[in-house]
Design a protein around this nucleic acid. Structure first.
Length: 219
DNA sequence: CGCCGTCCCTCCAAATACAA
DNA sequence: TTGTATTTGGAGGGACGGCG
């Protein structure tokens, strides 16, 4: 999972309230991998946490996202962008799946016959759940319940919802300070090394905090 | 009307963890 | 060690709306 990093899935520029464009060129994105993984998706195991890790665990286990997407589409027909926003909202911004995750998932679910799509206005692909999808969702009610419990816990841990904002402010201050010092060439080689060490230590600590957090969510 | 910003989707390359 | 599954970021592009 990602703790609301400054990645901006499709974040528009105006959404960036401080006017800073944290990364990227334009808010557009990607496809994950092709959806060859046809078999054995939905078996459940707590021990499997694949993907880009660097010590950060995913919020969803293997196949959980499929159930989450099915569940959201079952409630109301949706298109990819809306599903991303729904999941972001449901997790209070703690987890924002990238388009490279959502679109292949939607395509896969469609290929499996659990969803069907229809191109609506503005070339959006609106997905609706099929009877097969409803049955599949019923068979995975327990998984669905676990997912929503995780999301509820994530919401609870948001301390009123401004956690991510606090982090962003801190990062902003940090960047401004560093930039200022570097631009003015106030850092010698030794100081630069020291700062790099501090940053690396901080990263380790943040990873530890995140591990604790995701473990709590799993409980 | 043209420019620009935004929305939405698709494709590609790559990183990472885990299983075989 | 290799293959697989999952996820990410970057890039490209069509459609649409607002504005000068």
């Amino acid at each position: 999972m990602r703790i609301h990093s400054c990645r901006h899935v499709y974040h528009s520029r105006h959404e960036d309230e401080h006017g800073h464009q944290c990364c990227h060129s334009e808010g557009r994105h990607g496809r994950g991998e092709d959806h060859r993984h046809g078999k054995g998706h939905h078996e459940h195991s707590e021990s499997r946490h694949k993907g880009r890790g660097r010590g950060l665990r995913r919020l969803f286990d293997h196949g959980d996202l499929h159930i989450m997407v099915l569940s959201l589409v079952a409630k109301k027909p949706s298109y990819g962008y809306e599903i991303i926003k729904d999941i972001q909202e449901a997790s209070s911004g703690l987890y924002v799946p990238s388009p490279g995750v959502i679109y292949p998932t939607l395509t896969l679910l469609e290929e499996q016959g659990f969803l069907e799509s229809e191109v609506i206005e503005r070339n959006r692909k609106s997905f609706t759940i099929t009877q097969e999808g409803v049955e599949h969702l019923q068979q995975n009610q327990e998984t669905e319940a676990i997912i929503f419990r995780k999301l509820a816990k994530a919401r609870d841990m948001q301390h009123g919802g401004n956690l991510a904002e606090d982090i962003e402010v801190a990062v902003h201050r940090f960047k401004a300070l560093l930039r200022h010092k570097m631009v003015l060439k106030q850092l010698n080689e030794d100081q630069t090394r020291q700062i790099a060490q501090i940053i690396n230590d901080a990263v380790k600590q943040i990873e530890q905090v995140n591990t604790l957090l995701t473990n709590n969510i799993d409980d």
